[in-house]
Design a protein around this nucleic acid. Structure first.
Length: 309
DNA sequence: AAGTGAACCTGAAGGC
DNA sequence: TGCCTTCAGGTTCACT
């Protein structure tokens, strides 16, 4: 499901409700997801205050005042929703608009749903309502595990991550040594989280189309023999930054599962130029080509053979 | 060593 | 209608 823009959208949706809130209780509705939940995870979260909600690549990291953090990943089909609960009864509010915080979203469909695996119950406070944060994940490729905050960086899941695309660390100069010598297709290398952390199938396809580069080209072909980045690599970096920024702005792409935490849809999918557009005319100016679909290392690639060389 | 493909799991969509 | 196949935004592990 979610690539970096979707995860960032989720983070922005959750942060106003979670940061500063205290976790009253936690319901784990199964033993685990892709991995078992950490031992005593619910108990270790209960009574703790959320001091920050951070994103790294496609990971969400929830920092608690206990000095522990929860590392979360949405896998292919994970999503969060925020529900307001009646502080008196603890049940769901029935009427929208009554006494709810401005900017807090009311969910008319508030009943528990299939695949609701984790529920965080947040305490009411002086200026906040009682709420619950519900994690739903039909395919269960996502996970939540706990780790001490001071050693988070060294956790095996996070330690090997590559360049964060929405940071100054991403540049042709930093990317060049990572592509140098790699004869795998450019598409495959851009999907490698150890190179750039956060890109997925959609945004790699879109960035390559924007840059006019073939997904089949060898990754090393964007680096000169001396290790210097080529003009093509400079262009690719600009496209990556641009497509990620525009997608975040649009609330991500909603194909099937992705929802903003208020239940609304991202709309970046309407601006796809190549992804999922097999057989359609290439939107590049004066190209006249047709978007093709091929398979590369088991994943669909969408590209225009005419303008992507 | 590096690159490819299968596996994990459920649900939606399309073909017949 | 219903059954079957294919595919899906990710990651890891086992092969070659």
């Amino acid at each position: 499901m979610p690539e970096l823009p979707e995860v960032e959208t989720v983070r922005r949706g959750l942060a106003p409700f979670m940061e500063g809130a205290r976790i009253a209780s936690v319901a784990l509705n199964r033993e685990g997801l892709r991995f078992p939940f950490s031992p005593g995870m619910a108990r270790r979260m209960e009574g703790r205050q959320v001091v920050g909600l951070e994103r790294r690549a496609k990971y969400l990291i929830c920092h608690l005042d206990s000095g522990e953090s929860v590392i979360m990943h949405l896998g292919m089909s994970g999503s969060f929703r925020v529900e307001e609960t009646d502080p008196q009864s603890g049940r769901q509010s029935r009427e929208p608009g009554h006494g709810h915080t401005p900017g807090a979203f009311y969910h008319p469909r508030s009943a528990a749903r299939a695949h609701d695996h984790v529920v965080l119950y947040l305490e009411a406070g002086a200026d906040r309502q009682a709420r619950r944060i519900v994690y739903n994940d039909p395919r269960r490729f996502g996970f939540m595990i706990m780790e001490r905050s001071d050693v988070l960086h060294g956790h095996p899941l996070l330690a090997g991550l590559g360049i964060e695309p929405v940071s100054n660390a991403l540049s042709a100069a930093t990317l060049a040594p990572l592509l140098s010598g790699r004869k795998a297709p450019l598409k495959a290398v851009l999907l490698d989280q150890r190179v750039i952390a956060g890109l997925g199938n959609i945004y790699v396809c879109e960035a390559l189309h924007g840059a006019g580069l073939s997904p089949r080209r060898r990754a090393a072909s964007l680096v000169r023999a001396g290790g210097e980045p080529t003009e093509r690599l400079e262009r690719l970096v600009r496209e990556i930054r641009d497509v990620i920024a525009r997608a975040i702005e649009a609330g991500g792409s909603s194909l099937r599962d992705h929802r903003l935490t208020d239940g609304s849809l991202g709309y970046f999918q309407h601006t796809f130029r190549a992804y999922d557009r097999e057989g359609e005319p290439c939107p590049a100016p004066a190209c006249g080509g047709t978007i093709r679909r091929i398979t590369q290392s088991g994943r669909s690639t969408f590209y225009c053979p005419s303008c992507q060389r």
